[in-house]
Amino acid sequence: MEFLKKLFVDPFVEMVSYPDFLMQVLWEGLVSGVLYSLIALGFVLIFRSSRIFNFAQGIMVVFAALTLVGFHAMGIPAWVSVIFTLGVMALLAITIERVVLRPLVGQPDIILFMATIGITLFLIGGGELIFGGETKRMITSDLGIPTGSVDFEPFGGLLILQHLDITSVAAAVVLVTGLLIFLNKTRMGRAIRALGDDHQAALSVGISLRTVWVLVWFIAGVIALMTGIFWGARAGVSFALEVIAYKALPVLMLGGLESITGAIVGGLAIGLLEKLFEIYWGQPLLGGGTETWFAFVLALIVLLFRPQGLFGEKIIERV
């Protein structure tokens, strides 16, 4: 009885009695949800256009952030470093397409997945070799990102919004809108979507597979850089950041591997719910640290009812 009360009554009582704290928790959840969505978006773009489950997306975030910080440390102005980093990401996309993907065209999915794990390891080793393993500070102020905070006082309480978080949410909205316009309105964007719908049909109308792959990996690199900047500003730039890549996986399960909407909705949902669960159930009842697995278990439960995720394509199997 006592346990049931702790499980079903106390958390809600606490939510209602301290609404300002609840809002703070929701805001934090939303901010991390936005970043999860961004990483998941990178996954989805690559998966749609090439059926490759790109495990390296998370490490690309770290690699992009490290490259940016590395360029700046060499004395190059912040915004020029951003452009240089984009150049590096483009180079990376071309190299991966040329060296890894092209020889493996047509292999089973699991082989390509394994190859992206190979890329992950290569980037981890290479990144540590070039930039060193220690945690670095993201060049937040040099990039012109505000660092203060605004306080609100709803319901007589206190709600603190970091400027950084507001900027990251705004920037993510801009990036996603831009991406959607690109995918829906431009020639190249439509080529990407066509390739996602049907490989052979897209090839037969003259869409270049290689160009699209390079482009998609480059876009994934751009998304990675942006995620890296904002996540790095919150937590410092180091290889510990790769754990957020694992967070994007349940987002994909929840939203569906092919769906851009799914990535966004799934990311926000997981960000919010895992924060709520950790604060109101995880810490008082389970000793905390539930964030590592909560999202997976949640996605697993959803998947038992919808095996293709919330927004994924319905799987039709033929024998």
Binding site: V100, M114, A115, I117, G118, L121, G125
Partner: peptide, 10 residues
Amino acid sequence: NIMTVGALII
């Protein structure tokens, strides 16, 4: 070592 393992896998 990490780099080589990654490259070898590929």
